[in-house]
Amino acid sequence: MKTLIVIGLLLISGYSFAQTAGYQVGDMVKDFALKNVDHKTVSLANYRNAKGFVVIFTCNTCPVAQAYQDRIAELNQTYTAKGYPVIAINPNDAGVVPNESFEKMQTLAKQKNFTFPYLLDPDHVVTKQFGATRTPHVFILQKTPKGNVVEYIGAIDNDPEGESSSQITYVKNAINDLSAGKKPAVVSTKAVGCSIKWKKTS
């Protein structure tokens, strides 16, 4: 019985650890190599001319992520030219939600004409490194001589419905600040989103 309690406690602490771990603003990002919907492997190092990156954890099925699909495409269009391309990563496990499969990712990318990579993260390795907890969840990186540094973590804007007249475009504002050689005025925001569908371990 005692062992059972200990195991239970370990599980609980492991769980909360998994949620608080991950990159904070100012941290250096470890490069990754993930498979894109076109089967090619994508790494940050591939982007020789980039000044930074907009890494977005997003997925096929989450209604909030879906509501942001067009805004993500627009971000890529606008900011690739300025040196900040979008890299989308699907953090969800297809074993838990079948519609999150690689094939369904390919279908979505084709349907929506994604102009940015949409990467598979098997076993959530990169998702856990970043500490992403929901979709959509954005990490803006700035390239420095030492590596890629996290400069912003959070939401795309404060308007999931896309109908507010007083929209605050957090990601755009942050990149504009970085482009101007400044630190982003707002470095972290929160938003309601879909939980990540973690692989069942038991």
């Binding site: 949620q19 608080t20 907890t133 969840h137 929160k190 938003a191 309601v192 989103g193």
Partner: peptide
């Protein structure tokens, strides 16, 4: 989100 719990990232449930 912050007011409900400072640790909450906003993911539901």
């Amino acid at each position: 989100i912050e007011r409900i719990d400072p640790k909450w990232s906003g993911a539901i449930p």
